[in-house]
Simulated assay, not measured.
Amino acid sequence: MVHNSNDRNGGESPPASLHQRILGDIEAHIFSGEWPPGYRIPFEHELTEQYGCSRMTVNKALTQLAKGGLIERKRRSGSFVAQPQSQAAVLEIHDIREEVQQLGLPYRYELLKMRKRKASASDRKRLDIDTDTLLLELSCRHFAGPRPFCLEERIINLGAVPEADGEDFRQVAPGPWLLDRVPWSNAEHSIRAVAADQETAGALAISEGSPCLVVERRTWNAGQPITHVRLTYSGDNHALIARFTPAQG
């Protein structure tokens, strides 16, 4: 999983070529779930008629999609949406510091809030735990240069990770701390777009109501819940890029 900051030069983008348009339309059908794995893509001659272009243009777009692992081309049968191997092949757990450094920007981390408390009813839904379980609740900000890059809101199950209770998390973010010390066997991701509320807007230095990309993740170790984290990124200059490959066999 990679979050990229996009440079904006204020100008209007040039109109997309037919090849780019076909590519974008098919990707949109796949990523939205409208065309699920195994769905047959329209035949080349059908796409040629739909877009009013040459067969070579259609073939170029389909070839690019096949190289990217989004579709599988079968001789005489046509093209089909590829089967992803698993969710783990689509999304990985990365250190936010590395994401920022990949952008060529200096990284800074800030702990906003930390407290130990008993799990609430909402925590039971988020982490699948009993209400009397002790949690460590943290709120942090990650910066790319002078600008807030990500707001991290996390709970850690102290029953599974008791040593977190003795860590102050002022020098090291909880994400890499957990990755270094606690093995995980399963992870679940949820991705959605939200409008920034007042608190989130203030933390990310954006206007209230601005679009944001939210990634929520739960991890377990041998069936025991470890942590739930909500990562919020400003949606105007970040994109989620996921790559997957067809299932074997």
Rank of each mutant, 00 (worst) to 15 (best):
E49N: 10
P162W: 11
E12H: 06
Y39C: 14
L240G: 01
E12S: 09
A242Y: 11
S139A: 14
N221T: 04
C140R: 11
D130K: 09
S79K: 06
V100I: 15
V100R: 04
A173D: 12
A121H: 03
A160N: 09
L91G: 01
P225M: 03
R97H: 10
S17N: 03
S185D: 12
D132P: 01
R40I: 07
V229Y: 00
P106C: 04
Q85H: 11
L105D: 01
P15I: 12
C53F: 09
R8G: 04
E92S: 15
L111W: 02
T131K: 09
G166Q: 15
Q224T: 12
S234D: 14
Q83L: 08
L62W: 12
Y51K: 08
E98V: 12
V215I: 08
G235V: 03
R117I: 04
F80H: 04
L179D: 09
W184V: 13
F43K: 15
T63G: 13
L136T: 02
P211E: 12
G209S: 13
V182G: 04
A164V: 05
I96G: 02
V81N: 05
L112Y: 05
Q85C: 08
G223W: 04
A28I: 02
A28C: 04
L70T: 02
P106K: 07
R243P: 00
V100P: 01
S207N: 12
A222P: 00
R126Y: 00
I155Q: 04
E199G: 02
N157C: 05
I241W: 07
S210M: 06
A61M: 11
E216M: 03
T200H: 01
R230P: 01
P146F: 05
R147Q: 12
E152P: 01
P84W: 11
F31N: 15
G249P: 02
R8N: 09
R124E: 08
V214P: 00
I241P: 00
K116A: 06
R181Q: 13
A195S: 14
T133I: 11
E27L: 08
L112V: 14
Y39W: 15
P84H: 09
L151H: 08
S120K: 11
D132G: 07
H29S: 13
V81G: 03
D180A: 15
M114Q: 15
K60M: 10
A201D: 04
M1G: 14
A222D: 12
S77G: 01
N6E: 10
L151S: 03
N4F: 13
L151W: 06
P15A: 14
R230Y: 01
V182E: 13
C212I: 02
C53I: 10
R218F: 00
S120I: 01
Q224G: 01
I93H: 03
W220E: 09
R154W: 02
